[in-house]
Design a protein around this nucleic acid. Structure first.
Lengths: 231, 231
DNA sequence: CAGAATCCCATTCGATACTG
DNA sequence: CAGTATCGAATGGGATTCTG
């Protein structure tokens, strides 16, 4: 309709718009910059503080995290909120719409995990592990039973509730569950669920602990697996 | 000359690896660079030549397109193939696994389209329009009838086949369909499907033409709409 | 400790020009 | 048509410092 040329330069402060009506192109303008989508991922199970996020994303600098949080705020993906407890701090939290990005994040992960080049042995954040369960759970097999499983991973608590074939995961006190996995780091549990390292081996060699209903815990762990590789 | 810079980039000779086992992080290593996912999008309905892709992505430079195509080839997303007809040329074509990226691309687009900041009035490539139909079709309403609709958009031909609530779209001769939309550019059809500009207005003012079963064409167009905005 | 602000250089971008 | 080559400008992001 009108001239597109000049406006491109005027936007160039943050620059680099695709100028494309396609929703995917717009998504990339919102979350397509380096680190942005991983920040969203880290917030997907609830608001976090600056240094929590930073600790979960090894390699990101304070400067870049500051910039990305501000860009995501302006895009309406998250909000910055002051909290008084447990200690005064600011919390970064997804907006209602921000939370709706989960299916897109999941589809990207599901797709990439099928590459032969994917290396599941790398480090992993607790949130990342928890979200991967929602992506990788065998929905068919999951219909067979309900369960409430707690996780304490690197000091962070989560509760996974399996019900009617749906897997819900929230932050919370994991000791309220029927079984509890306690691990010093997320890759330990990833080894159990995806690499299928025997539970006993991880208990003796990787600091994994299982409390509560051990049979249920094993049955839960069996619900997961990596997708078949392709190409 | 000076002190050797301490390459803290231990896990990042290229500086661009997240070093994260998360599938989403790996996806971003594969297609997270600027333009990459839009290139994949342009190939989603079949292989194209260098200059075809370039013409569909206004703003991309030859240099960047060359670099991205090579990176995507190395990642196993696409292959480069010599063809002899219609004229000798090289074709960039997604691998089997590359084609599987469509759901991820769709989810991103579906999500971003719900932002109040999204501007559907921008330019749009023919492929982008066709893929958007698959994303935005009202699946419930689509079950009510089958149809074969042709599109000739900016000289490119497509056939959309609606069957059992599924919308399949392939490149092909659009005149074989029951109805045919002919438009000088993709945004004209986007105006019809999404902005709900009356067909007659677009025919007289935007160069749109409808051939064949006009009632069917109108019924088809009514299947589409933008998602409700949020946040 | 949370996080903003500054410095600064390697990387990357996009425009233009050039080549087989 | 299908890319290379080059160059100035913008950006990325690591390290460091400052503030409360």
């Amino acid at each position: 309709m009108k001239l597109q040329k000049k406006t491109k330069a005027s936007h160039a402060t943050h620059g680099r718009w695709y100028g494309d009506a396609c929703g995917t192109a717009f998504a990339l303008e919102l979350v397509g910059e380096r680190w942005s989508l991983l920040i969203v991922r880290e917030l997907m199970l609830g608001g976090r503080r600056f240094s929590d996020i930073r600790a979960s994303l090894p390699g990101i600098s304070a400067k870049v995290l500051t910039e990305r949080l501000e860009a995501l705020r302006q895009a309406g993906v998250l909000v910055k909120r002051q909290i008084a407890e447990p200690v005064p701090a600011q919390l970064y939290e997804l907006t209602e719409w921000g939370y709706l990005a989960e299916p897109a994040i999941q589809e990207l992960g599901r797709w990439a995990a099928r590459s032969v080049l994917h290396n599941p042995g790398l480090p992993l954040s607790p949130v990342s592990l928890m979200l991967s369960m929602r992506t990788m759970v065998d929905k068919q097999a999951a219909k067979a039973f309900d369960a409430k499983i707690g996780f304490e991973v690197a000091g962070e608590g989560f509760v996974a509730e399996l019900k009617d074939g749906e897997l819900d995961i929230v932050r919370g006190d994991p000791s309220t569950a029927q079984a509890l996995f306690r691990a010093p780091a997320a890759p330990v549990i990833a080894g159990l669920l995806y690499a299928k390292v025997p539970l006993e081996e991880l208990e003796t060699e990787a600091g994994l602990a299982v409390e509560g209903n051990r049979r249920l815990a094993k049955r839960y762990a069996a619900l997961f697996g990596l997708p078949q590789k392709i190409a």
